[in-house]
Amino acid sequence: MLNDNEIGQRIALLRKERGYTQEQISFILNVTPQAVSKWEKGNALPDTSLLPLLAKTLGVSIDRLLTGGSIMEKTSPYDGEYKKQEYYWGLQHSLLAEQIVEIMQDVANKRLLDIGSGEGRDAIYFAKCGFQVDALEISTPGIEKIRQYSQLSGYEVNILHTDMIGYELKASYDVIYSHGSLQFLPLDQRQNHFEKYKRHTRVGGLNAHLIFVEKPFVKVAPDWEKGELFYLSGDLARYYHDWEILRCEEQIIDCNSAGIPHQHAVYSIIARKIEA
Rank of each mutant, 00 (worst) to 15 (best):
V133I: 04
R111A: 06
Y87V: 01
L58S: 07
S117F: 03
L95M: 12
G68D: 04
K84Q: 14
W89S: 02
Y78K: 13
P52K: 07
D106F: 15
T75Q: 13
G80E: 14
I71Y: 07
T48W: 11
M72H: 01
L50R: 12
L113M: 06
V60E: 02
S70D: 09
T57I: 03
R111P: 05
A123V: 00
A123H: 04
A127Q: 02
L65N: 04
L112W: 01
G130K: 10
F126S: 02
K83Y: 14
G80F: 10
A97P: 07
L66N: 04
K74W: 06
S70C: 09
T67F: 15
Y82Q: 03
S76G: 03
E81V: 06
E81G: 07
L51R: 09
L113R: 01
S49E: 13
L58Y: 02
T48N: 14
D79W: 10
Y82P: 01
R64A: 14
G130D: 05
L65T: 00
P52Q: 06
K110Q: 10
L113I: 02
S49H: 12
L91C: 08
T48P: 03
M72G: 13
G80W: 09
L50D: 06
I71M: 06
G116Q: 04
G59A: 08
G80P: 00
P46L: 03
Q105V: 07
G116T: 02
W89A: 05
I124G: 06
G118Y: 04
M72F: 08
Q99W: 12
K74R: 11
M104K: 13
G68T: 00
E81A: 15
K83C: 15
Q85L: 14
L113Q: 01
G80C: 09
